[in-house]
Design a protein around this nucleic acid. Sequence first.
DNA 1: CGTTTGGTTGAAATGTGTCAAACTTTGTGG
DNA 2: CCACAAAGTTTGACACATTTCAACCAAACG
Lengths: 248, 248
Amino acid sequence: MHASFHYQDNPLIRKLESIFTLTDDERQALLDLPLQVVAIKADQDIVREGDRPSRSFTILSGFSCTYKMTGNGRRQIVNFSIAGDIPDLQSLHLKVLDISIATISPCRVGFITHEALWDLCTRHPRITAAFWRETLVEGAIFREWVLNVGQREAYHRMAHILCELVVRLRAVGLVQDHACTLPITQSEFADAIGTSTVHVNRVLQELRADGLIELKGDRLNIPDWEKLKQVGDFDPTYLHLEQDQAAA
Amino acid sequence: MHASFHYQDNPLIRKLESIFTLTDDERQALLDLPLQVVAIKADQDIVREGDRPSRSFTILSGFSCTYKMTGNGRRQIVNFSIAGDIPDLQSLHLKVLDISIATISPCRVGFITHEALWDLCTRHPRITAAFWRETLVEGAIFREWVLNVGQREAYHRMAHILCELVVRLRAVGLVQDHACTLPITQSEFADAIGTSTVHVNRVLQELRADGLIELKGDRLNIPDWEKLKQVGDFDPTYLHLEQDQAAA
DNA sequence: CGTTTGGTTGAAATGTGTCAAACTTTGTGG
DNA sequence: CCACAAAGTTTGACACATTTCAACCAAACG
């Protein structure tokens, strides 16, 4: 299956290429990774809290979210994942999953066994470092979300999360002319910013009325990026991207 | 300085020993780490957002917190650190700090240059893995905090954070008979659970009135651990401790 | 083309914030 | 070791951001 697989087709490899220059050896090792590609419908759990997975997966296309539930059934989304992300890479070291991951749009994901990942890491220390770094950036995103949910009002919180999504999507080439596809429902936004769906709706209307966003269906357009950044109190440093990717 | 330093004195080494059995080689390498031990007063920043540190540090004793600020000066604490933790280990890979770390009690910290850490990791892959794992557990704590702040009411949020602190303190031997020293002010708790100081005060009184905690000054006692766990909706899985450390 | 899913609206209820003052404990210099 | 200052805690009244409930509307879809 992966014999005819070109590395340009794998957003994960493209992402690593953007962080540092891979040697031919390293690139080949990544291309040789046995990847089980699976298409998954929207709103399906890929892994669940309590699982003890023997493999991780990378998002090839589509949107997924990482979430946790409280005892009384309230859901908190703690991160969105897009092409190039490996949202459960942690399971390589932490045997029991403390999170669930679900698709929020149709996705193509590539499963990679932990065995293959261990093998890759043992042979290529720089790839180990890159993977470790990826999990650290993910950690930085969680931290920013704690700040966002803990200290900002819903209006600013919403602006902030939109900024993050746009910057991350732009970094993997999914933004053209300040516009992108965002297949996230208001109820999913609600679970992400820790408010009710009703309130998300009101806040989005406010953002629209203030000319900060144009959001209809799954299309998002940002007419005034600087203003949105300002309202969202958004500083992309925590995403630890290359300079040019973090800029407008 | 570290010539006469016994590994029992370094909570970090003790912690690693508890995760897996170190070889003599590995233990010696850790003991040989050039550690610059510094005593720091309470309420001092150790590192600040925007810094580009050339070293990390481990907490030898005392309490510190990792925090972020919004543009309008509101502070969110995203984690507490105690003996054995390396709260800025991420700076090994992420050059610019996206967080600040401050003492909240007098602390003894041990600085370790990144150079020494890289050297250690290159020579000892299992220590690399253990460090990576530590940062992943930290990430799991951030995720749980997003859930806590995003979905639970202040009363339960407070109970949850107290549960986490007690379990983590117990894991490093700082809890005797359901009681421990907790040098955290109500205003610091407020910054950690994302509420006002006034509300923390009211919630603590409620928890006291309900017989869930006894908290006076910096002494915390837990008369009814099971009840507190239940109110805090607390499941220690996310701390990824050994079975016996996670239990009551 | 009806059914489901997602979005919108209004009114009332409520958790939490803010402000301001008083009280208590802790730490410290004289 | 007292006296005072500083830091931390407690209290009450009021304001307000956000939730909840319930209904209705619009778009998507098989």
